[in-house]
Design a protein around this nucleic acid. Sequence first.
DNA 1: CGCACTTTGTGCATGTCTTCACAAAGGGAT
DNA 2: ATCCCTTTGTGAAGACATGCACAAAGTGCG
Lengths: 231, 231
Amino acid sequence: MSQARERGIPDATVARLPLYLRALNGLAERGTATVSSEDLAVAAGVNSAKLRKDLSHLGSYGTRGVGYDVQYLIYQISRELGLTQDWAVAIVGVGNLGRALANYGGFVSRGFRVAALFDADTSVVGERLVGMPVEHIDELEDVIRTRDISIVVIATPAAAAQPVADRVIASGITSILNFAPVVLNVPDGVDVRKVDLSTELQILAFHEQRKADRESGSPIMAENLAEAMDA
Amino acid sequence: MSQARERGIPDATVARLPLYLRALNGLAERGTATVSSEDLAVAAGVNSAKLRKDLSHLGSYGTRGVGYDVQYLIYQISRELGLTQDWAVAIVGVGNLGRALANYGGFVSRGFRVAALFDADTSVVGERLVGMPVEHIDELEDVIRTRDISIVVIATPAAAAQPVADRVIASGITSILNFAPVVLNVPDGVDVRKVDLSTELQILAFHEQRKADRESGSPIMAENLAEAMDA
DNA sequence: CGCACTTTGTGCATGTCTTCACAAAGGGAT
DNA sequence: ATCCCTTTGTGAAGACATGCACAAAGTGCG
Ligand SMILES: NC(=O)c1ccc[n+]([C@@H]2O[C@H](COP(=O)([O-])OP(=O)(O)OC[C@H]3O[C@@H](n4cnc5c(N)ncnc54)[C@H](O)[C@@H]3O)[C@@H](O)[C@H]2O)c1
Ligand SMILES: NC(=O)c1ccc[n+]([C@@H]2O[C@H](COP(=O)([O-])OP(=O)(O)OC[C@H]3O[C@@H](n4cnc5c(N)ncnc54)[C@H](O)[C@@H]3O)[C@@H](O)[C@H]2O)c1
């Protein structure tokens, strides 16, 4: 029989589940009741065999000859990702980025709730955003414990990120989303994910350069398409 | 002999080069002249064998018994990533997030330059940010061509992202960084990278839940729960 | 020069992820 | 009840990525 329930969903699969969930929510909004792996794969922009294998890790939730029940699959993926419960998130660093994040409605909708905002700058502390006061970073430990925060978003300048991480970890946090451009040093058992704008741009630049090299360097592929457009 | 110069650096390696570059810049600022793969690996938070293999794809730039020359390696990685040239970036969608990105000094510093800002909202158009006026989305095609934009950042609401992508691609853009929570449909030859806050949070929630399960409950309970729903 | 020491670059084994391809399973028509 | 059509779930192969372990290459000292 299936050993899907054995603990151990591959990381690559976990990283795609949110993608499937989003595609499924789109289908649900349009009133679709069932969907085949082929159609869902197109909506999520992946290969259908990969999608089926990914879903098979959660269990056997499809019906052969029919497809997947959209609502049921939404529920199963949500449960697997832990979205059937509410997660209290704190944002540390209420600058340009921290403000944008706090004002962002998109992630509050599904399972996540901004429960605290912190900053070190006394001219920012006390300011209200989305019905919540910015609190002083000195309150960090207390608030994390009393408000049952489980995920911390770091949006401070690079230099402050490691000290902030050390403090939140000392307060029992084991999940951090880091926007500061530094490699955080954390003990085992703490998960850090990072969002790094400049890394993404650099990767794009690498490929962009390669495309440019190929056009001007290889005689076989030479297409003066770009020049035709300029004229 | 080494076939490192053969075109084809693994994607996984390309994704780590920016990380190494950042670590090297940190060392350079502190005046370090040479660094061993071991030390650099620690600074970048990776395994040293992996780092050496990654660097070997660029060429043989180290000295056995000594290590890597920091400045030289910075130059080589920068060149490989295409950072020795200037990339003109446009930001489409000047809302909460677009503003934070435009104001962000961090990526202007290294090879990237914000060369245009676009929005569809006429109450935003004309506003000045970082010494640059927000232009109307109707100008998109003209500006992309005349200002030699090569990378476009999409920070519009989800619904606008695909139409915007279609237009920038029609204008010749082949590199897009997408912040909107949608899968963009693009032709071959166009690179899209996405930054997705809610995906990251969901991945953290998954692991957080797993940690909680392991602590409190026996894994058997989870299995019975799933079966209860099947009935 | 020769020797001890350091550190790179890489062959190889191992592990993880992707993709193909198809048997097995279900639905519906006759 | 049988047949045909669709679609899942997965074994197996291939592609890709990681990490060990060490020979080769360099430094510097006596
Ligand atoms: N703005 C962007 O688009 C963007 C993009 C990518 C990365 N980042 C990174 O995100 C981080 C924040 O960027 P930003 O543009 O919002 O910067 P910012 O300077 O506008 O905001 C940083 C905020 O952190 C606060 N802060 C400083 N030290 C603190 C501490 N110890 N504890 C709590 N708060 C503290 C500051 O008072 C300030 O309000 C930076 O590390 C930046 O590199 C920003
Ligand atoms: N704010 C965040 O922290 C955050 C985080 C993750 C993802 N996102 C995503 O980033 C995107 C932008 O978020 P935001 O908070 O800045 O939203 P926002 O509503 O504040 O800003 C969107 C801007 O895009 C403009 N716009 C709309 N249609 C346009 C079009 N066709 N062409 C050009 N401009 C157009 C709007 O006028 C507005 O100024 C959204 O897709 C959001 O889901 C935001």
